[in-house]
C-alpha cells in the first residue's frame, strides 16, 4: 500500500543524501515504525510519500499510484498526522474537523463529527471550544479525528506521540491497533522505541537515509531494540 522504490533525495544545502536508495513496502494491516536520529531521513521519506518533496530518483507509491504523477488521487488514499498538529485557532475542534473533512471530500453531520472526536479521545466538553485554547495533546487528538474522518487506506505519522502524556500515548496506541485491524497501512516515524516495539508489526532503523535494519514482529519479541538502535548509531 505504501511503497518506496529506490527513493533518493538530496537537498541543495546538504552534502549528504537525505534519503538514499530507500526501498520499503507497508502492506494493509501493517504498522511500520521508522526509527532513527534527527536527520536520518524519516520525515523526508514521509514527505516524499505525501508529495511535499519531489524525489531526485526512485518513486513513492500509494496504493500503486505514483505520488508525483497523481498527487490528488494518492492524497485521497492517505491521511497524515504531523508531529505538531496545527489547526485554526479561531475554529472549535468540531469546526476544524468539519473544515478539513470537507476539504478531503467528506461531509458529516454534527453528530458524526463529534463521534470522530470522541473516538480520537477528545473530551466532549472541548468539542465546541476554540482550538486556540487547546493543549498540544488536544490538538493532536483533533488531528487524529481528521485522519479518521478522511477514511483513508493508509496513514502517515510523523512522531505523532511526541509531547503526549503517557495516558494519551496509550490511547493513541490502542487507536492505531484498531486502525491496523481495519486494514490500514501505517507508516510511523518515531523516536519512541517503547511505542515502536509495542505497536509496530515491523521496525526499520534508519541512518544516513538508508534502512540499516529491519525487524519483523517475531524478531522484535526477542531483540533488545534499544541496544540495537544504539549499536546502529554507534556504527
Amino acid at each position: 500500500m505504501l511503497t518506496t522504490e529506490a527513493l533518493t533525495k538530496r537537498f541543495p544545502s546538504a552534502a549528504a543524501l537525505a534519503v538514499d536508495n530507500l526501498t520499503l513496502n507497508v502492506a494493509p494491516g501493517e504498522l511500520f515504525a521508522l526509527l532513527g536520529p534527527n536527520g536520518a531521513g524519516k520525515t523526508t521519506t514521509i514527505n516524499c510519500l505525501l508529495g511535499f518533496v519531489t524525489p531526485d530518483a526512485g518513486r513513492a507509491l500509494i496504493d500503486g499510484l505514483d505520488v508525483t504523477r497523481e498527487p490528488l488521487e494518492t492524497k485521497r488514499r492517505v491521511a497524515y498526522i504531523p508531529e505538531q498538529v496545527n489547526l485554526y485557532g479561531y475554529f472549535s475542534g468540531v469546526e476544524n474537523l468539519a473544515y478539513f473533512s470537507e476539504l478531503a471530500g467528506h461531509r458529516y453531520p454534527d453528530a458524526g463529527l463529534r463521534k470522530f472526536l470522541a473516538v480520537a479521545g477528545l473530551e466532549p466538553a472541548a468539542h465546541d471550544r476554540r482550538v486556540a485554547g487547546y493543549s498540544k495533546g488536544m490538538r493532536q487528538k483533533v488531528g487524529i479525528a481528521i485522519a479518521l474522518a478522511k477514511q483513508a487506506k493508509a496513514l502517515l505519522l510523523d512522531e505523532p506521540t511526541s509531547g503526549l502524556d503517557p495516558s494519551a500515548s496509550h490511547e493513541f496506541s490502542q487507536l492505531l491497533h484498531q486502525l491496523r485491524e481495519q486494514g490500514l497501512a501505517i507508516l510511523m516515524a518515531t523516536h519512541d522505541l517503547f511505542r515502536a516495539k509495542q505497536d509496530a508489526t515491523r521496525v526499520g532503523i534508519m541512518r544516513h537515509g538508508r534502512l540499516a535494519h529491519i525487524l519483523t514482529a517475531d524478531e522484535l519479541g526477542h531483540t533488545d531494540l534499544e541496544k540495537l538502535y544504539l549499536e546502529t548509531m554507534g556504527n
Binding site: G51, F52, Y80, P82, N86, A104
Partner: peptide, 18 residues
C-alpha cells in the same frame, strides 16, 4: 507560519484552487 499548510497540502485538493 501557523503550520496549517502541511495539513492542507495533505488533502486531495489543488492548493492553487484553494
Amino acid at each position: 507560519a501557523g503550520g496549517t499548510l502541511a495539513l492542507l497540502q495533505a488533502q486531495p485538493l489543488s492548493l492553487t484552487r484553494w
